[in-house]
Amino acid sequence: MEKEQFEITMVEYLAGELTQTASSEFEEYLKNNPVQRAEFESLQQTWGKMDEAVVPETSEAMDVRFFEMLHIAETEKANKSTGFVEGLSSFMSLLWRPQVAYGILLVAIGLGTGYFMSTNTAQSDTPNTVVVDNETEEVREQLVLTLLEQPSANQRLQGVNEANKIEKVDEKVIKALLQTLNNDANVNVRLAAIEALVNYVDKPIVREGLIQAIGHQESPIVQVTLADLMVALQEKKSIAPFKALIRSKELDTSVKEKLESSIQQII
């Protein structure tokens, strides 16, 4: 093996990027080449020592500063959109010259005359659309609540899917979804409820509900899905219910291992 190739393979081996076959080949090569083996062993030791480097915990002040920065950025973004309206009005004031004003006046008179002379008195559609949209949302919410109470798992699943279509979900629907997650007899419906709730994890009530749901779950797949979700959210409050779950005797061994590793990732 050439020097550079040896260096590359060694790094791949140490970083765990070699396949099993390539690893065994490399080990075999080392057995037959004592000089390279000595070099490898000394570097492997240093590589291992790097894991012992102690890094202190980050302070709470760092979190406070970050979220302040984020809040300022969000406020600035909101102001920017109002800034656009202001910019438009200043642009309009620039146009406010006698010639332009006269032109606009003429157009307005023309439009006004046209409006009064027109026999078609159709009104603007916009308010109606808003009302219709609101009504659709309300009907959809009712549909979700009704479907979630049906005895057929298929219909309940449909109910959860309908919930995904609601843009501004209200507390009633969230509570119904959480209740489904805690009490539904069908695993697929419970999993779908988690998927639907993931859309609203920004709301404290949803996060709180998901954490409380951990203790109610008996199905391994639901437990594992919740664990993955909590890791993704880095939700520290979920550690206690997970630990309680690990202590219970009935828990599947592989789920137990999974939960332990999830707790580690959250900490």
Partner: peptide
């Protein structure tokens, strides 16, 4: 490949200083 060679040499240097 270059990144891996660099990592190897850095590790070697670290070993020497250590």
């Amino acid at each position: 490949g270059n990144a891996k060679v660099k990592a190897h040499r850095a590790l070697k240097d670290l070993r020497t200083v250590f």
